[in-house]
Design a protein around this nucleic acid. Structure first.
Lengths: 236, 236
DNA sequence: CGTAGGATTGAGGCTCTTCAAACGCGGTGG
DNA sequence: CCACCGCGTTTGAAGAGCCTCAATCCTACG
């Protein structure tokens, strides 16, 4: 399948002000994006594969992308759901390693690709960008510390609540209805975020529903009782 | 208890060539460490507490330090065992957050402390240091991705094998006997790395012993059959 | 020699996974 | 228009894995 090329000008890009590139000067931005290509991906396509060498960075212009690592037994662990304005694939490039994860679109998504050399060049020139990425990486390390601890210590029932609250906070904003979480996540995907079996996840969602914590119809899950969920999540 | 001050000159520091500061020019190093203080900590003392504000960075000159996060129920999850030449506490400082973890000495340890302003100043001046830390952070994010996936997918029996192999690789070098892992880790600490209950960990060590994978006496654990352990760990 | 903290062992039970089967629902072709 | 897939979802049953609690053992150390 051939993906459609799209023309997107960074200067007028609607997500630019949310992205990491907001701090770049115009000439720096121009230099970096001189060779960029923008592509329309269909749902379910892969931006990059675990174990391959980074060739550049991906800037998401719409849609959602799941970032996951595949375990030895073929089960996926979802590490991140990337969205509008997010930058993907730069870490392995910076640390000079193969991608430790795979990035796959959850919806039709427009993605700009910036070749490695151009990005690195800009990174070398802009101590602001370099510093920003450092700061973000440090922040993300803190977040992952938290995830790791939750995964190690919290029972599934609590982890699911944590996950739903996180999804609501992160993606509930642009949802049509207030407080509803609607991403194109299968039950299996959800289970692969929480770190549990699909069947267990389904049973727990069912329990939550009975307890009036959520409502759900198809893939749309709506948080009805946030305080209740926080209580179940057992945080603080 | 009052800790003993120690005088250590960075110029002659034996761990400097292993540390992140190896890339600094002499004058940069001098500037950064002008106000440093070096302190001898006893075993079991805390360098910094989870939830407190970073005031500077810690450079380990000897001994080992466990870095852990405490869960809501008081159980600790060990994130890292820091050693000679490692730098601690700079991430939360850079991301401008409270410490997400606690750092506690496992042995008597000498630690140099560099005040926040001096470190930040040097970071601002040295794009090399900034870039090095960025690279390391990116690398660590990849490692944590792996840990997260293991924790979510691997049964305890496999995770313990992974942990033992990791400890051997990382700390086996300076151990007296070849292939033995001897750090001042209680069974509880070990369990808190693996992410399991102390009793479960003890039973598994017992199993490993019966299978000839390891030998152990007190806290010293010696890997007898590395290939066997790799097999148990279930990693490619 | 006594004590305290860590290590070990045992029993019981709960959480969660696995395997199997049925169900729903949108799309497709006859 | 309807039957038939195919994929995702749901439900059920059985049992493995792991945790908790409690008791006992060990060992370093004062």
């Amino acid at each position: 399948m051939k993906n459609k090329r799209v023309d997107l000008a960074c200067e007028q890009c609607t997500v630019r002000k949310f992205s990491r590139f907001a701090i770049l000067q115009n000439d720096e931005l121009n230099e970096m994006t001189y060779n960029k290509t923008c592509t329309a991906y269909k749902k379910g396509q892969v931006l990059f594969h675990e174990g391959t060498r980074p060739l550049g960075v991906f800037c998401l212009h719409g849609g959602k992308v799941k970032v996951y690592k595949t375990g030895y037994d073929g089960k996926d662990q979802i590490i991140q759901i990337a969205k509008n304005g997010d930058l993907l694939g730069y870490r392995a490039m910076i640390s000079d390693e193969m991608y430790p994860v795979t990035a796959e679109t959850l919806e039709d998504t427009t993605v700009c690709f910036i070749p490695k050399n151009d990005f690195i060049q800009t990174l070398d020139d802009s101590s602001e960008l370099s510093r920003l990425l450092l700061k973000e990486a440090c922040k993300d390390l803190g977040v992952m510390t938290e995830s790791l601890t939750n995964l190690a210590q919290k029972p599934v029932r609590e982890r699911l609540a944590v996950t739903l609250l996180m999804l609501k906070d992160t993606y509930g904003v642009d949802a049509v209805e207030n407080g509803s979480v609607e991403i194109n996540l299968t039950r299996e995907d959800l289970a692969n975020i929480v770190g549990t079996a699909t069947e267990t996840l389904i049973r727990l969602l069912h329990d939550y529903k009975e307890e009036g914590l959520i409502e759900s119809k198809g893939r749309k899950i709506k948080v009805m009782d946030e305080k209740g969920l926080v209580k179940v999540a057992n945080i603080y």
